[in-house]
Simulated scan of single mutants.
Amino acid sequence: MFELMQALRDGANALKSHYLNSISINAGCELFIEFVRLFPHETKSFDDLKVEIGKQGRQYAKEAMSYRSKIADLALGFIKDGSVILTHSYSRVVMQALLKAHKLKRISVYVTEARPRGLGVKTYEALTAAGIPCTIVLDSAVAYVMDKVDIVLVGSEAVVESGGLINAVGSNQMAIIAKAANVPFYAMAESYKFHSLFPLSQYDLPTHTPNTLAFPKHSVRPADLSVVRPSTLSVHTNPPPSPIRTSTSLAAIHSPVQFSMGPDQTKLNPEVDYTRPDLISLVFSDVGILTPDGVSQYLVGMFAG
């Protein structure tokens, strides 16, 4: 049994090595290893035990494919007709909830751009293709748009033992602003993303390294910044042409060329952040609608056997 557990841990490490951000992978692997550890050893031989564990594991994986649909059904009751929803980046479970709500109710969606990966564009394109009114919001404009929003709905990389949320960077500031504006902040998470971590701050996350937000050893010159042509969506954000054409400098100001961080600067920034449990209204999961305290109790019970 000890050798089997070690083989599972080695396999989990090999799987996690293929991902820059392996928090959700780590949560699922830990859950399965704990399942194997607590599995009743009532079979006649160890070979039979391994066969039964594999059978149960495959059955769980099959059932897990339906979790997003269950979560979407739970969220429907909290999405009213005519709701304006703010979401962040791209989440498969949030997408399923929004598409299901669109079939039954009238909804409109604001989605953040979610730099540096820009996955908000993917959400925008999918929702627009489904006929849902959707607008992309700059990450820095979340406070600006919050007064127009009825609820905030985000996915998760992991829900931790404190009841807090680990998700795409920017989720924490969104939750802080929603709390200040008295807007409900809902998280959606499959139960295999429940993680036995207990971070107290951003710097306790497993993704945090000494290089995160570190000052460069040499000064950064303007030439180090990358010049990026606007995306296909830049037509929505470019300023209108200026009626004044007396100066080439003014023309340069209204140029569509955009400046953004290069890959070296992007690497210094975090991909995920931690949102405290007191900022989260509810967590929608396949095991039910939970408060952050409820998540904490569920995790303690799950890993205590």
Rank of each mutant, 00 (worst) to 15 (best):
F2E: 12
E3Y: 14
L8N: 00
D10P: 04
G11K: 04
G11A: 09
A14S: 10
K16A: 07
H18T: 15
H18Q: 15
H18D: 14
S22W: 14
E30Q: 10
L31C: 13
F35C: 01
V36S: 04
H41Q: 14
S45E: 02
V51G: 04
K55C: 14
G57R: 00
K62C: 14
K62M: 15
K62T: 15
S66T: 15
Y67H: 15
S69K: 01
D73Y: 02
F78P: 00
I79L: 01
D81H: 01
I85M: 03
L86Q: 05
S91G: 02
R92I: 06
R92P: 00
Q96C: 06
A101G: 07
H102V: 11
L104A: 10
V111H: 04
T112D: 10
E113G: 08
A114S: 15
A114R: 06
A114N: 07
G120E: 07
V121E: 10
T123E: 03
T123I: 06
Y124Q: 01
Y124K: 03
E125R: 13
G131D: 08
I132C: 09
T135P: 07
I136A: 04
S140V: 12
V142L: 06
Y144G: 14
V145T: 12
M146D: 09
D147M: 03
K148C: 08
K148V: 00
V149H: 04
D150A: 09
I151M: 01
V152C: 12
G155T: 02
E157F: 03
V160N: 04
V160H: 05
S162G: 12
S162Y: 06
G163P: 02
G163D: 03
I166H: 08
I166R: 06
S171L: 01
A175R: 02
I177M: 05
A178E: 01
A178L: 01
A180Y: 10
A181W: 09
F185S: 06
M188T: 02
E190K: 09
H195Y: 15
S196G: 07
Q202R: 06
D204V: 13
H208F: 13
T209V: 07
T209F: 02
P210Y: 08
N211Q: 13
P216C: 11
H218Q: 11
S219L: 10
V220N: 11
T232S: 12
S234D: 14
H236F: 12
P241I: 00
I244A: 02
R245E: 09
R245G: 04
T246M: 05
T246P: 01
T248S: 08
A251Q: 10
V257R: 05
V257Y: 03
V272D: 00
T275H: 03
S285C: 05
S285F: 02
V287I: 14
L290K: 05
T291E: 10
P292V: 05
S296D: 05
L299N: 03
M302G: 00
G305D: 05
